[in-house]
Design a binder for these strands. Structure first.
Length: 904
RNA sequence: GGGUGCAUAGCUCAGCGGUAGAGCACUCGCCUUACAAGCGAGGGGUCACUGGUUCGAACCCAGUUGCGCCCACCA
């Protein structure tokens, strides 16, 4: 590994850079160089502490969208920084088989050929999906290269790989044997279009316009009115329920009422679940088609009458048979109305209805035999791991949501009536025996048939942190890289994925001990990507951003920086083309700063000795002091996943301080006659830029690589030591690693900072005068600096003159204007005289501001309670401020008077 | 229905107890020998509303209004 600390100065005739950064010419080449150099490949045998991040596996059907780009930008920044810090960094890539989604894609393809999966049969269909995967799957992995993702391609995984499938089977068997997986007849969420069961979180609830209908069951004294939004299910009613304490119905409990249209009589039962306040206080009970009713049915031993098939067509014999559920509803209602059973109709009646999150079809609660994970004991452990700090969630407030869910989680329905996925490893004999088969077991022979269902795709995703490392085998990878360090993903899949990895990680890896069984130590959640107005991106809205388009037009670095700049923990990211253009400009700024450095013979790679530091100029000292502060700040912010703030700090240091002031100030020394001073500044220039590029590299890998190698002649900034001061890192055993620790950018230099800040105020003040006076920026103006000898700026007059284009006075110099700032009076000869009106406007404005300032301070200081209660430093600050304002007022008044005198 | 978050410059957001900040947009002047994807200067905000706590509130507390998100088996 090479470092920046090669002592040889760069060879002469280094590459000349063109005046603009053209990302297209850099990115592909650099990426391939990195891959070829093996920088992305982690080493399970490394002695260095590991830093591991697992990619949130995108669907194998997917292509890179802006959400991935956000996720990957943040992950890549974390991984690149750790790698530079000397960690054995692994970012493992891969894809998810995405059961329903992928099956749907291939089925649609088949449909174009006029075929259904049933025409092919199970084996041929699955084969067809594999074929599809071979041809089109993993497109997204290729696209990741263009973002610069530093993933370890040698460790790419797919959730249906043989190894990962073995992990699935292993844990299924283990859970089964532990009694944590069971099969039961339950009401589950059923999608009649996908024709499969769904778990609770695969159902999106939204308010639909419904209709609340009140229907009279029975007649005369035995009549009872029930209200429902799902009239058609009355065909499957097997009871009416009322609250036990509801006096209106006590006389009916235990009797039966006639169920209209069916000729059946159903019992009236008393159940505490019924809310006497709602509707009529009487509820129709359909155990086979409503989860509540199923529970009531269980309590009262009611029969379950299934009246719909898996396509949600009515199966109950009679006039409605064969109708779709939505056709049956008006039909049943009409029939009831014809019999005079409809007491009231209330519409519209908005109420929450579940929809399949894959296809949007209204979910049908359906009684069926499914496999479930008993989550309670697992969820308890998953909650505790966060509660006791073994896993930390960023931002912390999202932990509350995690607890809400984990602490009250229903059993997880894991069977899916699909063909694409991990088949449930359970076999049944003709005699009704059940056998769960582990990966080492012989499959049962003659007379046994395997369960036809496959597992929920999230079942295998939940194993991702360790199945990808070879579990259940105790592989070197598993030992080296588990637990993973950080999980980075959007808060939208906190429940889908994050919580489930917690359930299974803690369970499967329990032998490793409490601290080592967690799937990750930190969870860094980001938000959704939105448009410039904070609106959700969607194809129908037409406000989506294609990251590949941005990369092509603005560069990967600009795209990444824009995303990072918007990413605060848990916060949504707003994007627009103006912003990515701004980031592109920032790349160009760095490009030209480096270009300037190269043109001026900047020397990178030499450390500054104590001796050197003693001879530094004030601007050199200032920039080093600022670099130290910014380095520490950026480093701390990285630890907290404050990407927006890191980006902001680096952006402003690079642009506002390094480029706008330091490079301008350095010009005096670089072009000056003092060779020793110039040489020292060339080294400081190289030193600061070198470190700045390293600090920015995790966020903008390509441009920094191109510039850093050009500046230093080093091999790659990717493997240059990180300049940060290392804090106790989340991964590893808290040991500070990396040669970067020694390269901490030095100490603060408040004296130098004070001088440069004073210089900035003076320069800005005079520039303002020039602007007010309409003096063209480039026009040289003769001037003298009266009183500068008594200030800290005495030695910097040449720099100040250069910044302000003020020339030495020639013979016959007759100043006709003056500006005061920082205790210095700058007298200028503007030749044409000054614009008195403009000057008066400026002075008047400044006077008003100073007076307002003084007034506020005065008011505070005249309050006795303020003087008594406020801390001494606050009072002192107010005093200083008042004094300064008063001095300013006096000065401005004097100038205004002088101006008036001069005018008359 | 239950949680939870947010209301700050035209837009997107930062600041979270001591006299309001950034990026973009806007105005004016500049092709000043790294950069016009640039440089310099400037304008713009009763920090949603009402009370309270405090010497002092954008910041803490309560309420109001308006948005947003998550969870949810009330017919």
């Amino acid at each position: 590994m090479t470092t920046a600390d090669n002592t040889e100065p760069p060879a002469d005739g280094r590459r000349q850079l063109p005046p603009q950064y053209l990302p297209g010419e850099v990115e592909d080449r650099r990426y391939q160089d990195w891959v070829d150099a093996g920088y992305f490949t982690a080493d399970a045998a490394s002695a260095a502490p590991s830093f591991t991040i697992m990619i949130p596996p995108p669907n194998v059907t997917g292509s890179l969208h802006i959400g991935h780009a956000l996720d990957h930008t943040l992950i890549d920044a974390l991984v690149r920084r750790r790698r530079m810090q000397g960690y054995n960094a692994l970012w493992l890539p891969g894809t998810d088989h995405a059961g329903i989604a992928t099956q749907n894609v291939v089925e649609r393809e088949l449909a174009k050929e006029g075929l259904s999966r049933h025409d092919l049969g199970r084996d041929a269909f699955v084969e067809r999906v594999w074929q599809w995967k071979a041809n089109y799957g993993g497109k997204i992995l290729d696209q990741m290269r263009s973002l610069g993702d530093s993933v370890d391609w040698s460790r790419e995984r797919f959730t249906m790989d043989a190894g990962l499938s073995r992990a699935v089977q292993t844990i299924f068997k283990r859970l089964f044997d532990d009694g944590l997986i069971y099969r039961a007849q339950r009401i589950i969420n059923w999608c009649p279009r996908c024709m499969t069961a769904l778990s609770d979180i695969e159902v999106d609830h939204s308010d639909d316009e419904g209709e609340l209908v009140s229907i009279r069951y029975g007649d005369g004294d035995a009549a009872v009115v029930v209200a429902t939004t799902r009239v058609e299910t009355m065909l499957g009613d097997t009871a009416v329920a009322v609250h036990p304490d509801d006096a209106r119905y006590t006389h009916l409990v235990g009797t039966t009422v006639e169920l209209p249209l069916t000729g059946r009589h159903i019992p009236v039962v008393a159940d505490p679940h019924v809310d006497p306040e709602f509707g009529t206080g009487a509820v129709k009970v359909t155990p086979a088609h409503d989860p509540d009713d199923f529970e009531i049915g269980r309590r009262h031993d009611l029969p379950s009458l299934t009246i719909m098939d898996e396509r949600a067509l009515i199966t109950a014999a009679g006039p409605f048979e064969g109708l779709d559920r939505f056709e049956a509803r008006p039909a049943v209602l009409a029939a009831l109305r014809a019999e005079g059973r409809v007491v009231a109709e209330q519409r519209p009646y908005p109420h929450a209805v579940g929809h399949c999150d894959r296809c949007g079809t209204t979910v049908e609660p359906r009684l069926s035999l499914q496999w479930f994970v008993k989550v309670e004991p697992l969820a308890k452990a998953a909650g505790d791991a966060v509660r006791d700090g073994r896993v930390r969630i960023y931002p912390a407030q999202l932990a509350a949501r995690y607890f809400d869910w984990v602490d009250d989680m229903h059993d997880w329905c894991i069977s899916r009536q699909l063909w694409w996925g991990h088949r449930i490893p359970v076999w049944y004999s003709a005699g009704g025996e059940v056998r769960c088969v582990g990966p080492e077991d012989e499959p049962p022979g003659e007379g046994w048939t395997q369960d036809p269902d496959v597992l929920d795709t999230w079942f295998s995703s939940a194993l991702w942190p360790f199945s990808t490392l070879g579990w259940p085998d105790q592989t070197p990878d598993l030992r080296a890289f588990y637990p993973t360090s950080v999980l980075v993903t959007g808060y939208d899949i906190l429940f889908f994925w994050v919580a489930r990895m917690m359930l299974f990680g803690l369970y499967a890896m329990a032998d490793a001990g409490p601290g080592q069984s967690v799937p990750f130590r930190q969870v860094a959640l980001h938000g959704l990507v939105r448009d410039a107005f904070g609106k959700k991106m969607s194809k129908s809205r037409g406000n989506t951003v294609d990251p590949l388009d941005w990369i092509a037009r603005f560069g990967a670095d600009a795209t990444r920086f824009t995303l990072a700049r918007g990413a605060s923990p848990g916060g949504d990211v707003a994007l627009s083309e103006e912003w990515v253009a701004g980031s592109r400009n920032f790349c160009n700024k760095l490009w030209n700063a480096t270009r300037f450095a190269l043109m001026n013979g900047a020397v990178a790679g030499s450390e500054l000795t104590q001796d050197d530091r003693a001879r530094l100029s004030v601007p050199d000292r200032w920039v080093l002091s600022r670099l130290a502060a910014v380095t520490a700040e950026a480093d701390a912010l990285f630890e907290e996943f404050e990407f927006a703030k890191v980006s902001d700090v680096l952006y402003h240091f690079a642009w506002d301080e390094f480029c706008d002031w330091y490079l301008e100030l350095a010009k005096a020394a670089l072009n000056g006659a003092d060779e020793a001073a110039a040489g020292l500044t060339r080294r400081v220039l190289g030193y600061v830029l070198d470190r700045l590029l390293r600090l920015i590299h995790p966020l903008m890998p390509f441009v920094t690589e191109e510039l850093w190698t050009a500046l230093t002649g080093g091999e790659s900034v990717m493997v240059a030591p990180w300049p940060g001061v290392l804090a106790d890192a989340g991964a590893g055993a808290g040991a500070a690693v990396g040669v970067g620790a020694a390269a901490a950018a030095g100490a603060a230099d408040p004296a130098a900072e004070a001088v440069v800040e004073s210089l900035m105020r003076l320069v800005t003040g005079v520039r303002r005068f020039r602007a007010d006076q309409g003096l063209r920026p480039g026009q040289p103006v003769p001037a003298v600096f009266a009183g500068i000898g008594d200030t800290s700026l005495a030695a910097h007059e040449p720099s100040i003159r250069a910044l302000l284009r003020l020339t030495e006075p020639a013979a016959g110099f007759t100043p006709n204007a003056s500006v005061q700032a920082e205790g210095i009076t700058v007298r200028l000869d503007t030749s044409s005289g000054i614009d008195v009106a403009a000057e008066r406007r400026r002075l008047t404005k400044d006077l008003a501001a100073a007076q307002a300032d003084a007034e506020v301070s005065q008011r505070k200081l005249s309050s006795q309670s303020f003087l008594d209660r406020a801390p001494a430093d606050v009072v002192a600050k107010s005093r200083d401020r008042l004094a300064a304002a008063q001095a300013e007022i006096a000065r401005l008044r004097e100038r205004l008077t002088a101006l008036a005198d001069a005018a008359s």
